[in-house]
Design a protein around this nucleic acid. Structure first.
Lengths: 261, 261
DNA sequence: CAGTTTGGTTCATTATTTGAACCGATGGTT
DNA sequence: AACCATCGGTTCAAATAATGAACCAAACTG
């Protein structure tokens, strides 16, 4: 592995649950020698991607990321552009809306919006990586990847997160086929037993499916009427975000969405 | 220079004006061999910090930055927390408010808020690095750095950006002394001849002055009454952001701000 | 169509990275 | 208080990964 690769992997070690890490822990987590780790993290510090907390001497992600992310958003407003649509979706459905993007082979949470309608809501604050096989977003996105990527995901171990999680690759392939036909995916209790969700794929300027948009509701509230509402709103919002990203849905999806309207 | 350092310097080459860069240009700008540059940028790509545009083969900042920046903001909400205060400041003064943070030895623009009050406004969209000697924010922040950092800035060449730009280190030192006494800095036409601005320093949880907050107005609109209003609002907002950042102003600043109220 | 420049690759040379051992400081535990 | 473990950080010979000139094929440019 290249030295640069090792340094960049250090960045991946920071998660919502683990916001700051000491040098020894960092070395352990990365599987690096402490001295090596120190040099790498020092380099990251020097460029502001990581910073050291004076008091505890722990390291955490640095302020340069804000600037770089702002620069990225100025050029390719992935998040900024989608945010209002996301909130509108949450408002229109009265449920939690959720935007994720494909990055580094995994589907990652990018933003969520809550509705004020209900006191009980699906909170997703701490979910950072969405398993493809167990979430509506995951299925929606996976359905529109090329066969190699899809095969890789289905070949890897598929953990059973709840009793309802589908873990059989063959069955999943059938579901993905259905997603491709309908342009919409559903995940019922696969990730959290009490949560039911629907999701549509999102397409970027390069025609790739690079994200997913989902609405997650408490299973108890998911009446057929509510389902229909969510489907319609999801399709509207999916079209809107795809357009904002400069993309167009594949013809098949466009047709399926039109039919569902 | 470390390999990692070289790779991270590539990130710095992307600016608002230069959002995407081809391999050869990238190598030239970085002063690297093309092959070396290719390997480095490939590593960055592999981790999503940079991505390649399929069509032009140019490179641009990647989507991983969004996730990392969001993670940073979740832990240390520097920008998120300050944004509403910034907008309130713009609204209260009817002018452009501007937040900058110290990062990698330079003062960088982090956010701006515009007032709807006037059709003519100071736009700062493309300013990314603020010269310490020629802006109110720069003086406000520089005044509260330790002597080594301050000496380094004053020893470097101080470009004359307008006829009014003060470039004499000795005179600047006097101004900085005045800023320390009053807790507020002013910059009149030093950066842009027609813009007058006021700024206060901001302090983070570690007691360091790590940012500046400014209000910039067209010089023609800056009446004494308007000046007084801006000063008062700036102090309020400065106190608010410093508190949100978990910091406290040095006693001297606290007193000066109290006296000005 | 000839000349340039592009993104990308190769491979022997070279310079950088690596890690065991070590340091002083800190914080429990007995 | 003596002990032990662990912390962040440093050192330097040995090992490994980075480097860059030369070289492609393809895409522009005149």
């Amino acid at each position: 592995m290249s030295t640069v690769g090792k340094a960049l992997e250090l960045l991946e070690l920071f998660t919502p649950a683990r916001g700051q890490i000491g040098l020894s822990d960092l070395a352990r987590l990365a599987g690096l020698n402490k001295a090596t780790c120190f040099r790498l993290v020092s380099d990251l510090c020097a460029h502001g991607l990581v910073e050291q907390i004076a008091a505890s001497r722990d390291y955490r992600l640095g302020p340069a990321l804000l600037r770089l992310a702002a620069l990225r958003e100025a050029l390719v407003p992935t998040r900024t552009a989608a945010l209002p649509v996301l909130q509108a979706l949450a408002d229109a459905t009265g449920e939690t809306a959720h935007l994720s993007i494909l990055e580094g082979g995994s589907l990652r949470s990018l933003a969520r919006a809550y509705s004020a309608a209900h006191a009980t809501r699906v909170t997703l604050e701490d979910v950072s990586i969405l398993p493809f096989h167990a979430t509506a977003s995951g299925l929606a996105v996976l359905a529109f990847q090329d066969e190699v990527a899809r095969a890789a995901v289905l070949a890897a171990p598929l953990p059973r997160l709840t009793p309802q999680t589908e873990t059989d690759p063959a069955t999943l392939r059938q579901r993905l086929e259905a997603v491709r036909r309908s342009g919409i995916a559903s995940g019922t209790g696969g990730f959290d037993a009490e949560v039911e969700s629907l999701a549509v794929p999102l397409f970027d300027a390069l025609g790739r499916c690079s994200g997913g948009l989902a609405v997650a509701a408490m299973a108890s509230r998911m009446t057929p009427a509510q389902q229909a509402l969510i489907r319609a709103e999801l399709i509207r919002a999916g079209r809107a975000i795809t357009t904002l990203w400069g993309g167009t849905p594949p013809a098949a999806v466009s047709l399926a969405w039109q039919a569902a309207d």
